[in-house]
Design a protein around this nucleic acid. Structure first.
Length: 616
DNA sequence: TTAGGGTTAG
């Protein structure tokens, strides 16, 4: 204690104040200033309050206290500093307290600095009305034209999701600088207006890394992952400094595409460029590897991470569930609890799905009950849906129905959909029809319900049922979402749609399709024509099956990838039963591992077997 | 003293 006193230089007692200073040390500095009469010097006092507020936001009440008990009226500088400190903290609304203090002091009036941070405080507090009032008084005082205030306003209105106001502020700028342009690019990209954002981005004379990140993140967020990656290569070509934020977006894009090769490359890039693996970046890596079907790498990253949060644990738990490792998923969840990481609603969704994969029905139900009992988490629609799925997949249709009937909230499409899917698996026509009616009552144009029910009909050779569904779909103008499969070859992503002939190597693909079909048949594959239901005449059925997008992608993979290289495919819909069957045969006769990412889970095909054990 | 982007899990 005395040593610290000696350390404080008489002429500059504030130099010891920084973010590492502890409360007792602050007391000492305070006492020192007091003893030496520094606090009677208004500029020095203001400096003390400001430094304290800005470097130790946790001690804001202390700063506040100092100000209230000040021997002289607080200066604008001190008040502004408190506004600034509050504007980014957990109590942004308190910034207004100091603003009013400025307004009520006859000697003071707010300046552009005040408004800059008041605008930020409004954004942080999500206080749209207060923000508009701040804007109005800045205008009245002629301070709204300050570039800092304007950038803040753009940011604020974007935060409030008020695109018109955002644009109005921007339009009023006479000469927008990089900062304002970047803010606008971010605002547009963040609200989903990626193309407008890109237009502005392209028009910028100068672009710093922040503008690139805003743009790449924008693409990545709206799911335009290919463009995110393209822009990233452009960014590198231009030699722009790449940081953590960029890589998080790049990994998100790779995860979305299921582009393992590019994801691995990104991981290598992070290591080579010594970009620190923070919790966020590590979690993004785990998510990328899980969604690309490489759970071994995902867990390697997981175990190597020092700091892990709920997101990190949840993404590993979810990855294991998605990839069919139900047992490991549950083990990891137990470990998570042992490590005192509190699971949340998202975690429980994955845990219940893990139970579903492992066929542990009662265990799943226990976890569901523990949500409320042990963690006070009120189950969401999604959790109810998962439990219906859990019962349904296990063939316990009665339990599923009873569960739906006992739901304390109105059953949603997801719950009925899970039941309908169970009816498909267990061929229960009557219950399937009932579930479909329920779904259509809620969403008359739900294409999935029509498709599932017609699958049930087709399975029982009820062609009349199938065609009546086709009729009512036509009558209601419901169309099935077109299937699309994506495969990555040589770092390039290739997309295939049903019956797509547009690929440059289509001729070779067609030959390979014939080969696949011929060799699979020899091994005992029989086409399931039941799966083709829409607008196709009988005799074309078998042909059409060969043209399902995943088959095209597999054919291309067999041609374009090296011997023994795993074929990885990402599909936007669920794999149909026929393709699932066919892929099993292909994996055997071509001795090739094939990993297909479905709409909601993975299928690892090897030697004629699928990891989902046909339980999907 | 000041501004802008960004984030991960179902």
């Amino acid at each position: 204690m005395t040593s610290l006193r000696n350390l404080i230089p008489r002429y500059c007692p504030l130099s010891l104040l920084d973010s590492t200073t502890t409360l007792p040390q602050v007391h000492q500095i305070h006492a020192h200033l007091l003893v030496n009469g520094h606090l009677n010097d208004p500029p020095l006092f203001a400096k003390f309050v400001a430094t304290l507020a800005l470097s130790l936001p946790d001690l804001l009440p202390y700063s506040h206290h100092l100000l209230v008990h000040s021997p002289h009226p607080p200066s604008l500088f001190a008040l502004n500093s408190l506004i600034r400190a509050h504007s980014k903290g957990p109590t942004p609304h308190l910034a207004f307290l100091f603003y009013h203090q400025i307004l009520h002091s006859p000697a003071l009036s707010p300046d552009h600095y005040t408004f800059t941070f008041l605008v930020r405080a409004s954004a942080q507090a999500a206080a749209a009305a207060a923000g508009a009032a701040v804007h109005a008084s800045a205008l009245k005082r002629g301070l709204a034209a300050d570039p800092y205030v304007q950038s803040g306003l753009i940011h604020m209105y974007a935060e409030f999701a008020l695109p018109d106001a955002t644009r109005r502020v921007y339009a009023e700028l006479r000469r927008p600088d990089v900062v304002a342009q970047t803010a606008m690019v971010g605002a547009l990209a963040g609200s989903g207006e990626v193309d407008l954002a890109r237009e502005m981005f392209d028009g910028m004379l100068q672009r710093d890394p922040i503008a690139w990140n805003a743009m790449i993140a924008g693409y990545s967020q709206v799911g335009r992952s290919k463009e995110a990656l393209e822009l990233f290569s452009l960014m590198q070509a231009e030699g722009v400094r790449v940081g953590e934020a960029t890589m998080v977006s790049v990994l998100t894009a790779c995860a979305h595409l299921g582009a393992l090769a590019q994801g691995k490359w990104a991981h290598g890039y992070i290591q080579k460029n010594k970009i620190g693996i923070t919790v966020t970046l590590g979690t993004a890596l785990i998510d990328m590897y899980s969604k690309c079907g490489d759970m071994r790498k995902a867990m390697e990253v997981f175990w190597s991470m020092g700091e892990k949060n709920v997101y990190t644990w949840s993404s590993a738990v979810s990855g294991l569930a998605m990839n069919g490792a139900g047992k490991e998923c549950l083990e990891l969840f137990e470990l998570m609890k042992q490590e005192h990481v509190r699971p949340n609603g998202v975690t429980f969704i994955s845990v219940i799905r893990g139970c579903s994969v492992a066929g542990l029905v009662d265990k799943g139900r226990e976890h569901f009950d523990s949500m409320r009992d042990e963690y006070s988490i009120e189950p969401w629609y999604e959790h109810y849906g998962c439990i219906v799925d859990l019962y349904g997949r296990a063939g316990r249709l009665d339990d599923a129905v009873n569960f739906i009937n006992a739901m304390p909230i109105e059953p949603h499409v997801g719950a009925w959909g899970a039941l309908l899917n169970a009816c498909r698996i267990y061929k229960n026509i009557e219950l399937g029809e009932f579930a479909t009616r329920k779904i259509l009552e809620l969403e008359s144009k739900n294409d999935g319900a029509y498709v599932l029910l017609s699958n049930i009909y087709a399975d029982s050779r009820n062609w009349k049922g199938v065609s009546s569904i086709r009729e009512s779909m036509k009558a209601k103008g419901v169309s099935k979402e077109p299937g699309c499969s994506v495969i990555e070859v040589g770092g390039k992503v290739h997309e295939f749609f049903v019956g797509d002939r547009s690929h440059p190597r289509y001729k070779e693909i067609e030959v390979m399709l014939g080969e696949m079909s011929r060799r699979s048949r020899l091994a005992g594959y029989v086409a399931r024509t039941n799966e083709v239901l829409f607008d196709i005449e009988e005799e074309e059925k078998e042909d059409a099956l060969c043209w399902h997008s995943e088959k095209l992608a597999i054919a291309f993979g067999l041609i374009a990838l090296g011997e023994g290289v795993t074929i990885r495919i990402v599909k936007n819909l669920r794999v149909c039963l026929d393709c699932h069957d066919a892929t099993k045969f292909i994996s055997k006769v071509f001795q090739r591992e094939i990993v297909v990412r479905d709409r909601n889970r993975f299928h690892h095909f090897k030697d004629g077997v699928c990891s989902c054990m046909d339980y999907w």
